[in-house]
Nucleic acid binder design. Sequence first.
RNA 1: GCGGAUGUGGUGAAAUUGGUAGACACGCUAGACUUAGGAUCUAGUGCCGUGAGGUGUGUGGGUUCGAGUCCCUCCAUCCGCACCA
Length: 1012
Amino acid sequence: MEYNFREIEQKWIKEWRKRDTYKVTEDSSKEKFYALSMFPYPSGAGLHVGHPLGYIASDIYARYKRHQGFNVLHPMGYDSFGLPAEQYAIETGTHPAETTEKNIARYREQLDKLGFNYDWSREVRTSSPEYYKWTQWIFKQIFNSWYNNDTKKTEPISTLIEKFNSNGSYNVNAAQDEEWYKALDLEKFPFFGEYFVGEFTATDWQSMTEEQQQLVLMHYRLTYLADSWVNWCPALGTVLANDEVKDGKSERGGHPVVQKLMRQWSMRISAFAQRLLDDLDTVDWSDSIKEIQRNWIGRSKGASVKFSVAGHGEIIEVFTTRPDTIFGVDFVTLAPEHPLVNVITTADQKADINEYVEAASLKSERDRQSDVKNITGCFTGAYCEHPFTGKQIPIWIGDYVLASYGTGAVMAVPSGDQRDWDFATHFKIDITAIMEDADISEQADASKDKPLMNSDFLNGLKGKKAVNAAISAIMDKDAGRGKVQYRLRDAVFSRQRYWGEPVPVYFKNDIPYLIEDDQLPVTLPPIDEYLPTEDGDPPLARAKKEDWDVFEGDRMELNTMPGWAGSSWYFLRYMDPHNTEEFVSEEKMKYWNQVDLYMGGAEHATGHLLYSRFWTKILCDLGHLSFNEPFKKMINQGMILGRSSFAHRFNWSLDKIKNVELDKTALGAEHFNPVFICSGTKAKLESGEADYNDVMKVILGHYKGQKNYDALMKNLELLKAKNLDSECAFSIQNIHVDINHVDNDAMDVESIKAWKPAVFDSALFLNGSLEVTNGSDVYCDFDVEKMSKSKYNVQTPDDLVEKFGADTLRCYEMFLGPVEQSKPWDTKGINGVHNFLRKLSRLFIDKEGNLMVTDAEPSKDSMKTLHKTIKKVTEDLNRFSWNTVVSGMMIATNELTEQKCHSRAVLEPLTLLLSPYAPHLAEELWEKLGHTESVTTEEWPAFDESHLVESEIHYPVSFNGKMRFKITLPAEFTKEQVEEAVLAYEKTAQYLPDGSPKKMIVVPGRIVNVVV
RNA sequence: GCGGAUGUGGUGAAAUUGGUAGACACGCUAGACUUAGGAUCUAGUGCCGUGAGGUGUGUGGGUUCGAGUCCCUCCAUCCGCACCA
């Protein structure tokens, strides 16, 4: 029997498992290749056809690399901590571990059907204690580290303590919050006076109690406890990261999010901002992802400048990216929330300012951001001094300045900044012109390449020179310094949830201490309910002391880690998944090294991908890793969209008719069985080509005898009598129908009736000729939408594997187009791909299943086809062009079929080319060819140019660039000979009225162009 | 507003360094064949035109013997960022 994919695929799934075909070990004699797909969160819905797209692509690439002799690591696992399982636990009381286990089993079942070459012995699950033991261990490493800005490296906290012991805080240049010392509770440090600015001596340090030392160290650690404003989601009872909040609502669930001050664990990612930015140049990722990360990090270079407030000791610090425009400062604007507003406002401005601050506080940040047109602000009555001219500069407040960005204050240069210009113009503040040739009468001129004027020592300078001169002058005056600022904030690392990694920390006198390594992992204690407690403590507060397997100090940490903890390092664990002594052994880490190809969605651009890079850098600095970036090359697969089908329900209504007594039981379509029309009819009706009344007539003919029919006829006659029958309102309603009951837009009426009897069973279906039908001649319209249950457009891989086989599905998903692009899913084309595999297998075996392969010498043409295909497939895979490989194989199959080629010398290499795409079929054919070893490790066929050499070339001949005809000439012809032959050719005269061309271009072997 | 990506038949798309635009596949049309099988085979299928021919890669311009590809302009769609000082 020809191509029995069910039998073949089931056979090889079993065989591969039996033979451990995909087991990978470290083998230093081979070059390694690490191909990774982002691991999934195992949701209850299972996989739809969009998920495997990236898995298939990386699987094909992994198989290809294996054929090329690489030792390929290609693992899979599960990001199995997460909200949905916990939400389900809250609703049903089912332990999230149980739900997760069930979902994983379903995922595995689906994945197993698709023929992936995963080494399942390396599977990891972030929620298993064997795994999160090491997530906790990494947390401890980070806790015990500080960032040395001098060496630009993470260092163990012990080196910091040494420094404190020998020199105190002097000569320590650590990454810290600015003015961190203000957060220190000075009552606990009686020896620091009120003028304490964060510096202390070795003696100070040594005389501190352990508790005091811990409090100080907390401000240096790379993960630290601090009160921070967090996105609190009351409905979820938890804190969300910035990137988990979309439009003020939680990304998952869409619940409202508010700002709240909480004591939280944070990770000092801000210390790594510059390195995260710089090292983007060392990875091969898409420009868009890199750009998103650059945006997120948000580096701006400029200067911080101090303005002293006249008559106060206070200083306003601003950050500016244009210190060169310092002489154009006409006013200073503070955010309404700026702490100095209350201090400096003069008595007669007090009322106005208070009113403005009040009004601003009522506006959400979002409102303030979106309201660009309304310029608002208020003068404080106070002035500050220009650091160079000494000029008195008015201080305003305005809600266009955000408290959370920079220092919450700007030096306003209306001549060079449009917002400042708008503000100055609105409030009639004089604008100082500081650039030559700049017209600032209508708008600000933000250009940097115009020479400065009215700017004292900067006059005549422009661009970088001006900026540098300004900064050094500002520094000389002690009025500020050059500064680089980042938008990137430290990442909050606490979640008030149950289903996450416990933080390996306990508290003694409210000071956090780490659980010892030999006590790890701290596993999740059982609890009776998964909600926060009535006091608002996280769910873990429900666990009693004896429920914990590790309990130290006064209490354990009750927060768990966020979702990104486990996924920030999972690619490392695959290298050495069962190691109980280390998170990964040095030897294996050095062998497998970076991920060579990372396949995944672009939606993780600022979350997972940034955090993984961050943790990799920490672990590398601490000597645990030999590389600085986790993912060398990344490809982002596009989304596969659903193709929804719509049936057209024909409606009419007499509702709008007034002054006529109508029978209310027959006013509209809702009183009758529904009527569905064809998409063609719908188009004709809407364009006016067809008349609604014609459809109505047909319907009436079929309603005879039905309930309400007589009433309807009476109504219609009544209307006719009054000449109102044109008032009947018609409409067509689109209703989603399950794509499983639609084939090529044709509805399978019988099965649609069975699918939703309540709507369709009694319905009338009219075909394009307005005849009632139960056949498949009623057509739907379609639309491309996201796949979702409610749209009945979800296509599961299971259905397709059942119908066509995994090999067909694999090839088809690749054939759809470039992986990076989003595209609609359309089952129509899958037949063609299935036929290709069937046709290909017919080169090997006949209908009875007999092998037709012979040892006969292949024809020249067949060898040419083969080598052309080897070249194409190899080159295309090398440039990650998965889709074009399939068409290349199709062309080969078509050509070999035509050539009636059954020669082993051609078909064996062809099987190898097929193997990454259709591994089951390739394996079966390989065995049929008489091999006992698996095809998966066979050597990739070598390309031999000599088979492609042609003795004749078909030259396309163009006139003025337009191709007119082709001419076949010997390949060895020189330029001159080709020219001669073309001119002598009979058809040439037709396009060459003058007899001789102006010019002739001959590209040997390619093309001839005649210029007339 | 800034940044990134994309734009080619009825559909998914191909064209790798500028060199035959639309490969391959779907769909469609006509036909053949058949123990009807998501079969197979033949011919056709960008658009306009009976034809010769014309025209054609979002728009308009440019460079070139030759442009889907390079440069400039504008437009549309998607994504990211956004009073970011």
